[in-house]
Structure formats: structure tokens, C-alpha cells
Amino acid sequence: MRRYKRTVVAVALATTVAGGTAGWASGGAQRAVTGAPPGSAAWRAEGVPGRPLPDPATADPREIAAFFRTLTPGRQRELAHRHPSVVGNLDGAPVALRYEANALAIRAGHDPRYLRLAAPGRQILAFDPRGRGQVAEVYGDLTAAPRVSVVVPGSDIDAGSFDRAKDPYGTPAGMAVSLRTATGDRTAVVAWTGYTTPVGIGLDAATGDLAEAGAGRLARFTQGLVAAGAAEPALFCHSYGSVVCGLAASEVNATDIVVCGSPGMRADRVADLRTDARVWAAKDPSDWISKVPNVEFAGLGHGPDPAGAAFGARRVPAATAHGHTGYFAPGTDSLRAFAAIALGESAGAGTTGESR
């Protein structure tokens, strides 16, 4: 009974402090945005001579890539202009075509919150205005770069805040830019806000419901990158984003899965992730996430600490990172190690327990 009470207390504490990147305000329940992108009904109703268009909800990214290869560039652009919200979010479609389609969709929406995303030079690979908004932006040449990384953020991130100026290294855009710069611009990096994140601190951050919805979207997104001709990516997963990556690990196309400031990956050890990717973990001494009990009970909490020796992840040094959002700050040992991993190297990163 005493052990049970300690567990309940630990879970209650996890519910109170797990998950956020932006503050300590209590968060309300979020409804995950999933399924086919806006405009899919009109897309399905149209076809090309002799065949239907691939269903955005069911077609495999490889099937979508193969379909677009059968079309002339003119026909591809015609579809993008007629159905920008679908083509812009269609995993497996040509990358440049998705950039063009999303710029059209953003301008057509006339939402002042998002018009900045259509500015010249921005490479928006996904955009969905439903809910709080989802977006993915590419830094670098995605299909030409020899190495690709994807940044998966934690709580309090959406299409309006993924590139905010405040606390930049706690945002996927800031992390992505910092990581690419640290590699000497030799990589392409995607800031992926492609799932509904928890807001503030509450049950959403302490449960895996939003992460489960996000895991499927992340797996499909990475499969779409490879189908469209990009290199298999390394995933850099921050805070609650590491829960998403843990649940997606067995399905994603990834060379590496790197977690930092993680409350847990919904697995007891690396082997339980069922992935061939190298798994890495970083946690700096000043990160408040250390106060979150690493338990999982009745659906609450996210399990053991991935940075703990028993978990078996390769350990990333983080002695000079500061706080929960300092892992990608320039000059830190964690960023130097992340850059080495992004380049396919291991310099500056050690191992703890088993490695894969």
C-alpha cells in the first residue's frame, strides 16, 4: 500500500510538471488534428484521364511519389494550383511543388497570423490551419543535401509560435537554424510542427494521447521525405516531442533518434523501441524535467528516463546547456554533439549501456 501511495503521488506530480517548454500555466485539453488535409473531398472528386487521384488518407507516400512521376511538370503545377491545401500536405509529392502549393494556400487563406509564412524564400513543406495550426519549414536544400534532420518539438508549439523570437532555442525553427549552422550548412533541417502539442501543464502533457496521434503523422512524414528523394533523416526530439518519437520509433524512417529534455519515451529501454536507428539522449543538470518522476501508471507519465544508464541510449554530453530549452544554444557541448550526429558522425557523444 505504501508503494502504491508513492506511485500515485509521483504520477500526480508528473501531471503537474511534465511536458511544457513555455511556462507553468495550466493547460486545457487539446483535440488532435489528424486525417486527410483540408480540401481532400474536392481532390478525390477529380481525376486524371483514366484514373483517380491518390487518396490523401490512404495512399502510401511511395505510391504518391510514383503517381507524380507519371505527370508532366505542367500537370503537376495545375493540380497544385487547383488543390493547394492537398498537394502542400501530400507526403511523397515533389518537394518544390509542395513549397509552391503551400505558399498559394497560405495567401488564399488571408489569415494574418500566417501570411508571414508565404514570404519569398520560405520553404513551407506542410501547412494546415485547422485547430492551432501545423507547419513544417525546411532550411537548406532538402533533396540535394547529403544529410537531413527533423526537429520534433514539445508542448506549447503550433503554427503561430514555432518560429517565435522569444526563447528561440525552445522553438523548432530556432533549433533547426542553430543545428544547421552548427553543421556548417552542410545539412538540410526541417522544423516539424506536424502534430497537436499539449498546451501548458495538464493532463495532455502527462498522457500519451496527443503523442500517439502525432506519432502516425511523424512516421508518414519521414516516409514521404524518403519517397520524394530526400536522405533518411535524423530526428531531434525535444521534451514532449520525445514521447512522439518514442511511439513512432518502430515506423519512422530515421538514421538516428535524439531526445533531449525528455520526460520519457513510453518504453523501458532502447530495445523496446523496436528501431534500427541509433538512439541518443541528453539531459542537462539544470533542466527542470529532472523533477518529473519517471513513472508510467494508469496512462499517466511516460516511463524511464532515456538519459538514465538503464535505458541504454547513447549519452549526449550536455554539461554546458542551460535549462529546459538550452540544448541547441550556440557554444554548448550538446549542440556540438548534435551537429556531429546530424552529419553522421559520433564525435563528442558517448555511450551508456546498450547501443544499436
Rank of each mutant, 00 (worst) to 15 (best):
E212T: 07
R44Q: 11
T21F: 06
A342S: 08
L115R: 11
R31T: 02
A215W: 13
A144W: 00
P285A: 08
P153W: 06
P233L: 02
F221S: 03
R220T: 14
Q134Y: 04
P293R: 01
R269Y: 06
R147C: 05
G121M: 06
Q76M: 15
A329Y: 00
A227D: 10
D163S: 14
F127H: 12
A329G: 00
E212W: 13
V244Y: 10
G331D: 09
V258M: 02
V150K: 04
I106C: 05
T332G: 01
A213W: 13
E100T: 09
T58Q: 01
A254F: 12
I289E: 14
R164G: 11
G348R: 02
P94K: 13
V9A: 11
P129D: 10
S242F: 10
R75Y: 01
P52D: 10
P56E: 12
A173L: 11
L142H: 09
A45Q: 13
A182S: 08
A349L: 12
V148T: 15
A310N: 08
W24S: 08
G27V: 00
A18F: 06
T275W: 05
Y195I: 08
K166I: 12
G224W: 14
Y327S: 09
T196Q: 09
R98K: 10
A234G: 15
S155W: 04
V259W: 09
D128M: 12
R6A: 14
R356M: 01
A80Y: 12
F338I: 03
A307S: 15
I289V: 15
G241C: 06
D333P: 02
P38L: 13
G39H: 05
W280P: 00
G200Y: 04
A118D: 07
A29V: 02
L300T: 10
M1I: 01
A14D: 13
D167V: 09
E251N: 09
W24A: 14
R164H: 04
I157Y: 08
R217I: 15
L142F: 10
G27W: 03
T16S: 12
T193G: 15
R315N: 01
G74E: 15
Y169M: 11
L115H: 02
R107P: 00
A340D: 08
V8R: 08
A254R: 01
Y169C: 03
Y139Q: 08
R3F: 10
P285D: 05
G214F: 13
I157G: 06
G323A: 02
A57C: 03
V33S: 04
A103T: 11
G200N: 05
